[in-house]
């Protein structure tokens, strides 16, 4: 379990990184937190000749909160974003999801943007990206381009990113004021990749006992090829928060996902689990004291 030989590039500036990647991208990989890439290299499942290590590139380590989004730089660690109070105040889903990303040691090193670029459908942050209508900021030898999260993922571990492009930052969209969010998942062991999980955003209209659900959107982990948003609105709109009936949700969820079986769970089980988790997430968001997005920043 030692990697094959590679050339290690350690650019200090973004344009330098872009230049190196332009040269070696066809046979190179971008190294950020390394939590997925290094094991893959050690097991020789991939043998890129070049690693473009962006850990020392200036300016990629910041989280910026604006009126419309939370912008996360390419080498912001999961832990840094998780603990970012301002980001949490405007988009609690980030922290809610990040708490489910592996273990603290991994979150200290792994990057949120890296996890999105890696495009593992079992990853939490790709799912958050789609449900928040995030924008992926890519940069390459042909300049910058912005890609909507919904168009970024092509398949398991596949994105529309070109070999000579890297992701400079991801802008997570802020949700409408009053939107309630949660992130739930079920894993075999604490911190493992989930058997199923989801990020959920629910809008409620009215207040107190009269409140009813206006809309709900969910994005799933581990039960779809690529992270997709499932609009649950048809199944939940108008449900009174005080005594909701989620029976229509299950069919909608089960129709929208196509879990693969693996050694940890059957496809049927994952499907049922995803539906149940959705029901529980809806219940917790509507009946319990919840964390909701703040108003204007």
């Amino acid at each position: 379990m030692k990697p094959a030989p590679f050339v290690h590039h350690s650019p200090r500036a973004l344009d330098e990184a872009v230049a190196v990647l332009a040269e070696v991208g066809h046979d190179g990989k971008v190294l950020a937190g390394g939590q997925s890439l290094i094991p893959v290299l050690n097991m020789r499942l991939a043998q890129p000749a070049h690693l473009v290590d962006i850990n020392r590139v200036a300016g990629l380590d910041t989280v910026t909160v604006t009126d419309t989004h939370v912008r996360v730089g390419a080498i912001v660690r999961h832990a840094q974003l998780e603990k970012h109070d301002e980001a949490y105040a405007v988009l609690p889903l980030l922290r809610q999801a990040l708490r489910n990303v592996a273990h603290p040691a991994i979150r200290n090193r792994g990057t949120t943007v890296g996890s999105i670029a890696h495009a593992d459908a079992a990853g939490e942050m790709p799912s958050v990206a789609v449900v928040t209508d995030a924008v992926i900021e890519a940069v390459g030898p042909r300049g910058r381009r912005e890609i909507a999260a919904g168009e970024f993922f092509e398949g398991p571990l596949q994105t529309v990113l070109e070999a000579d492009e890297l992701v400079e930052a991801v802008r997570f969209g802020r949700l409408a004021p009053g939107t309630r969010t949660t992130f739930v998942e079920s894993a075999r062991r604490h911190g493992d990749y989930a058997l199923a999980g989801l990020g959920l955003a629910v809008d409620v209209e009215g207040a107190g006992a009269d409140a009813v659900v206006r809309s709900a959107r969910a994005s799933y982990v581990s039960v779809t090829d690529i992270p997709v948003v499932v609009d649950l609105t048809d199944a939940v709109a108008g449900q009174p928060v005080s005594s909701p009936d989620w029976s229509a949700v299950e069919d909608l969820v089960q129709a929208a996902i196509a879990p693969e079986a693996d050694i940890h769970a059957s496809s049927d089980y994952r499907r049922a689990l995803a539906a149940e988790l959705t029901r529980r997430a809806l219940t917790s968001l509507t009946t319990e004291t919840i964390e909701s997005t703040g108003g204007a920043a």
Binding site: P39, M43, R188, R189, H190, G191, I263, H264
Partner: peptide, 26 residues
């Protein structure tokens, strides 16, 4: 948690700590 997941051809499908589940303290 733990099992050795052999397929019918004798390949061990979970030969790593990612898929061979040793319980954590949790």
């Amino acid at each position: 948690y733990e099992r050795m997941a052999y397929d019918e051809t004798g390949q061990l499908l979970n030969a790593s700590f990612m898929d061979f589940l040793i319980p954590y303290a949790s």
